[in-house]
Design a protein around this nucleic acid. Structure first.
Lengths: 339, 339
DNA sequence: AACAAAAGGTTAAACGATTTAGAACGCTTA
DNA sequence: TAAGCGTTCTAAATCGTTTAACCTTTTGTT
């Protein structure tokens, strides 16, 4: 009871394998009659169509798109931002009969998939730096989101501008300000930056956000000291709690804390409220992303809203179109009640 | 500048293609010397290893596992239970150098992937019923989670028993009880069941939960009327809100509401609190799943805790082991403050 | 010394399709 | 009649590996 192959079918129907193949793939290459005749015969004898594995080899096309997520999948899948992004990607891929391979950005290499996937969507700078290089050196299409890879199309919002704007809205003259940042330096735990060397400052969106904050701070005449900048290795509650405690216990306490994500801002808010700090009276907080939960807190969070679903959809569309032009998506500053 | 093939390399090194192949795949088939010599030469001339697409065809193995999620990916990815499940799966797959293909359970067919994936993990009964049949008819390994497919190994908790226990803990003699159920009948929107025909009652876990509730209700001498059972088409907040409003506005109001998921229970709680109903004084609520958020509410939710991560990990392990034995995982009844 | 077994390699046939070049056919046109 | 053309189909090369079967040489055993 072996599986039928094109050859078997051809023999049974008394035609060449090419004709069967054409019946399935290139209707213009044979008469309509013959085609329906063949397809019906196939259905009858239980041949469901050309073997995909063989097609992949021969055609050099698999209809599989790899979605490279910045961190380990363990972290990413629970992050609501990444989550809705995946949603957007999957929607467009499905509409186009493509498949989605989830790939961890902390993997060692892409050589084990590059031969068979049709392209890559890369969400955030891969934690394993070598991956970026490899992605860029191979020839299949790549679309990057929330970071840049030389010569490859990118989907982004204007992070510098957005950060500048939200910071500007939150700051008052004479403020002490702190920043809770994300992936700015290479450290496995939450800590202040001080003089640590910066991590791929060119391509990272968190650096664009830092740039925006700093521009606003400078304009307000507020000094930016690196010991007032914290760094979180991942966008996860666990690290955020730690950072929140530290910054809130530091003395003198800042008047404003700019957070590079809502996840961070929410934990900070929670922590501050528990400590009995009045928001925004004694402390102002800003987030980033506009996740749903940020709209449900009391007081509700000041943040930069961006549509992750749309990002995902646009990324997928861009990859499938084969276009090479980057794209800047709109965002919205939501003043909220925390500033 | 074409890509190097095994043949090219063989010619350049003056050995047969088989030897190169063996150097990469079967170290025991050639001397250690020759092997390192070959591998080094490969690195030098830039051959990164056998082409994966060709391997897939030839070996009939791709290292890709399809994760079939019950619903459209759009819904699933945001559900925290599904989410952590994916996390568990991905963790084990990565440890074993396997890849994860995300597949929507409302897809039309699996013929477009069955030829190249190594197996399927099926999470929940596919929304498109034909998929189950197709999955069962093909010969690659399948592991089911939270539903059953004849002859295939399944990973589950004892849903009937767990539901019985939590219901038993929540009920008092003489109670009026309502049930907010999930995917019991085929309806696109939230509604009561009445006499609607049941949906694949055999394989669905939500039927096991219903069985458990009913057993507890009967033991307490409480009548179970189908117009006190609501059905939600998906485990999503949107539908839950609707059901919550309806059931809370019905008269006489139930004393206990048994919810088949925490998502439902949380929306119900929220809704009840907004209406000024005292929990658990005027109304008792139970959930199911034990998602993190259920532990953070005030009062915190009575629910059945099960570890989705573990489910995912076990499912992946089971698939990779090739074993054919089903598995029942532990759960824990958490009494909470809502009963 | 004779022979069996192991070690190290090679050859060539799969794996299951796609696709180019061209054959066979029927028809029109000069 | 021969040439020209469009249609429909076939033969054969190709995609890049893996692996069963086979052939030498070396090693081990008695």
């Amino acid at each position: 009871m072996k599986k039928l192959t094109l050859k078997d079918v051809a023999k049974q129907l008394g035609v060449s394998t090419a004709t069967i193949s054409n019946a399935f793939n290139r209707p213009d290459q044979l008469s309509a009659n013959k085609r329906t005749e063949i397809l019906e015969a196939c259905k009858e004898i239980g041949y469901t169509g050309p073997n995909r594995a063989a097609q992949i080899l021969r055609k050099g096309q698999s209809n599989i798109v790899a979605l490279v997520l910045a961190d380990s999948l363990d972290y990413m899948v629970t992050d609501p931002v990444a989550n809705t992004f995946i949603q957007g990607v999957s929607r467009v891929l499905r509409e186009n009969q493509k498949h989605l391979l989830l790939y961890a950005g902390d993997s060692d290499t892409i050589t084990d998939v590059v031969d068979f996937v049709d392209g890559f969507i890369c969400y955030g700078a891969p934690r394993n730096g070598a991956l970026s290089t490899q992605l860029n050196q191979q020839s299949k299409p790549v679309v990057t989101v929330d970071f840049n890879l030389e010569g490859r199309p990118a989907i982004n919002i204007d992070n510098e501008k957005a950060s500048y704007e939200i910071a500007k809205a939150a700051l008052r003259p004479g403020d002490r300000a702190a920043i809770l940042g994300l992936r700015l330096i290479d450290s496995p735990s939450t800590c202040r930056i001080y003089d640590s060397p910066l991590l791929d400052a060119e391509s990272s969106i968190t650096y664009r956000r830092l740039d925006g904050y700093c521009r606003a701070l400078k304009e307000m005449g507020i000094e930016v000291a690196t010991d007032w900048i914290w760094n979180l290795p991942e966008n996860a509650g666990m690290y955020a709690v730690q950072a929140a405690r530290e910054v809130l216990q530091s003395w003198p306490r800042p008047d404003v804390i700019l957070c590079m994500s809502d996840i961070i801002a929410l934990e900070l808010l929670q922590c501050a409220l528990t400590m009995g700090i009045d928001i925004p009276g004694e402390l102002r907080i800003t987030g980033f992303d506009g996740i749903e939960e940020a709209a449900r807190t009391r007081p509700y969070m000041a943040t930069v809203c961006q549509s992750s679903v749309e990002k995902g959809m646009e990324a997928a569309k861009l990859l499938l179109s084969g276009d090479n032009t980057s794209m800047s998506l709109p965002y919205e500053i939501k003043l909220g009640e925390t500033i």
